[in-house]
Design a protein around this nucleic acid. Structure first.
Length: 213
DNA sequence: GATCAGATGGTCT
DNA sequence: GACCATCTGATCA
């Protein structure tokens, strides 16, 4: 049995040097086409990253804009750290920490194109929403991970298990690239009021798994 | 397709 | 006490 995270062939797990190599906005763009993978006790789930947003220091929409607090502490960790935070009292969002340590920048993962463990994703989404998600229906597959809160549920990502964890050594990883040769769209970010005019959102052009196009 | 209200609770002022 | 990096179902079209 091959190691899912490190990969058996040309597609390999990204290491810390990958996250350190690029500034936040460049990494937000480069992560498109890479695959997010979670090896959990229930099984492995994975999906191609098709939509991201960058959050920078000096950016009023960034959680680290004011100062380091208990909530945003993971953002100040080294590049390649996972930052999971709760929003609206009921959902969680996944970020890849970027930039130098103690700076506080990150890339929000907003949507995935499911590739592995689709039944498990559907089961998790069904349980969380209290209704049945059937990936075989017209939009069923698309509804699993086309939003930051949704993909966290489908992937089985939790704050206690993954906040502060390392994408290089933890159960959550990024591998790839698995999708190349696509066009990218740059737009303003979604769901924010501060810094709403900044063009820090990126997605794979024409990809139907993006949250909003 | 679009738009809108409600759910729901931690975090920071 | 106000503010959210959201999702869902209802309603209108």
């Amino acid at each position: 049995m091959t190691n899912q995270l490190t990969g058996g062939g040309a597609v390999t797990r990204a290491t810390t040097s990958f996250y350190e190599e690029y500034d936040t906005l460049t990494l937000a763009q480069r992560l498109l086409g890479y695959e997010l993978v979670h090896e959990s006790p229930e099984g492995t789930t994975a999906g191609i990253i098709v939509e991201t947003e960058g959050y920078l220091t000096g950016d009023p929409a960034c959680h680290a804009y004011r100062r380091k607090t208990q909530r945003n502490a993971a953002m100040f960790g080294p590049a390649g750290t996972v930052y999971v935070y709760q929003i609206y009292g009921m959902y969680y969002c996944l970020n890849v920490v970027t930039g130098p340590e103690e700076v506080g920048e990150a890339v929000l993962i907003r949507a995935l194109q499911p590739t592995e463990g689709i039944d498990l994703m559907a089961m998790r989404r069904s349980e969380a929403a209290g209704r049945l998600f059937d990936p075989a229906t017209r939009n069923g597959l698309r509804d699993l991970c086309n939003g930051p809160g949704k993909l966290v549920i489908a992937m089985g990502i939790t704050q206690p298990a993954h906040n502060f964890s390392s994408l290089e050594t933890g159960t959550l990883a990024i591998r790839g690239p698995v999708l190349t040769g696509f066009d990218m769209v740059t737009t303003t970010r979604i769901g924010i009021t501060q810094g709403a005019d900044l063009p820090y959102r990126y997605y794979v052009k024409g990809n139907r798994f993006v949250s909003k196009w």
